[in-house]
Nucleic acid binder design. Structure first.
Lengths: 170, 170
DNA sequence: TAAGATTGAGGAATCAATCTTT
DNA sequence: AAAGATTGATTCCTCAATCTTA
């Protein structure tokens, strides 16, 4: 079942590898490579879009998460979890976003180690202008899939996600 | 159809957004976010694995592509296409890989602008040691999917890939 | 002029270490 | 000690500019 993937090793090559490495499973390798490549190209495409709007992917992820919680504030640590980046990265992103006036940090009186972050009015305005365009792009991206297919894709992706620990192990 | 995704905006939040932004399509947004997040976590997991072996994802991608063509050499520009990174990035990766003795660059007499790249014997040995472990991890990652499901996932991913131009447009 | 490869400056993310508060 | 946030050094990647050959 060759998948005719431009820019990826063709199936014959993978079968040849299988002969040399008994653990190689061509279908698994091919699908994994495709997933990584599609994701990589997708990141690149979104990044170009974000750059046009003067932000980065990381900053957008922070803003959209803050909006999702708005008007409730969010802790930096939770932003790190929700966006899948390091706490150190969040600190850097917040520094820039605060300098641009899009978010505001505030201390928490009950526990002075903590900080809360929320959108400023300026941040809300920024998102109100950006999101219609953004959502139109997402809609275009997924336009080729029916609702049922989107659901199937999500289910399969969650299964892949469950396998991620196997990649990290000893 | 809530997908119960930890660390992603829940469905209610997306539906609330839909009320505010008419172009927002909750199922599309949710699936897109899931795809990006799974890919991101997967990149992170593979990166940890590559780091343990003393290389980076980019260097691995170059090596595996060279192996796929071996014993034929590959031009830097083609490596860029196949790995989905910039030519500038390839140059940097090749510099390190050459310094480590894993690949060799050679001039092309017919057209002296061109360069060809191939694995050294040392590079082949490196891959022979790395790949069994690597393939075992890929196998573990995809172990939750049947062959039919892998095929379905690949098909859906290719449909998403076809939608990427919509993300870049005006 | 253009193609192909490379270099250098800059941004974003990580790890390890630090600082403050509990 | 430990939790939470931040900083500094480093790595990887991109963009724009450069260099060489066609």
């Amino acid at each position: 079942v060759a998948l005719e993937l431009k820019n990826l090793p063709d199936y014959e090559k993978l079968v040849a590898m299988q002969r040399r490495f008994e653990d190689a499973e061509p279908a698994a390798i091919e699908t994994c490579l495709l997933l990584l490549r599609v994701a990589s190209d997708l990141f690149t495409a979104f990044d170009a879009h974000f750059t046009r709007h003067g932000i980065s992917r990381g900053r957008f992820m922070v803003l959209i998460n803050l909006m999702s919680a708005d008007p409730e504030p969010v802790r930096p640590g939770e932003l790190a979890e929700r966006t899948g980046v390091t706490g150190a990265t969040i600190s850097g992103l917040l520094k820039h976003l605060e300098a641009d006036g899009l978010i505001a940090r505030a201390g928490v009186p009950e526990d002075r180690r903590r900080v809360t972050v929320r959108l400023t009015e300026s941040g809300r305005t920024f998102l109100r202008r950006l999101l219609p365009d953004h959502f139109r792009r997402v809609r275009g991206l997924m336009g080729g899939l029916s609702d049922k297919q989107k659901e199937t894709l999500a289910r399969l992706l969650r299964t892949v996600r469950d396998g991620i620990p196997a990649v990290r192990e000893p």
